[in-house]
Amino acid sequence: MPRIQLNVNKRMYELEISPWVSLLDALRDRLNLTGTKKGCDHGQCGACTILCDGKRILSCMTLAIMKNGAEVVTIEGVSEGQKLHPLQQAFIDHDAFQCGYCTPGQICSAIGMLAEGKAKTREEVKDLMSGNLCRCGANIGIIDAIMEIHGGLSHE
């Protein structure tokens, strides 16, 4: 069986893995990092969003073997120890979730989106976050939370 290396949340893992295992399944079922969610498994919901080499991608639409050697950050890796990532805190402050199923993907997507540095306005943030669906309809809180951090960063 093929052997791959993945750096996940700053830890090196070596895995024996079949070529047809998605990155999402590898994270959840092999590394027990179940924070990343499987919503649709077809690229349509964004629940499986992770950061791969600094970019937000859908872990359900790629194979673990295609990411051999990559650096992956999941929701489990965004805080610094007990100190929440500012977006995590902002999601709490703005009531940006109900069931929480979309939240890990929303937060990883927002981290990636802010790093891309392309959204200037609320309208643009909404458009660039449209790849993350929220069935509970917490969208307004989600965009509010992101806008708080977005404003914070742009004033730094």
């Binding site: 970019k55 997507s109 989106m113 993350n132």
Partner: peptide, 9 residues
């Protein structure tokens, strides 16, 4: 087209 995540892939 698509979404921010998909366009990154």
């Amino acid at each position: 087209g698509a979404s921010g995540q998909i366009r990154n892939m």
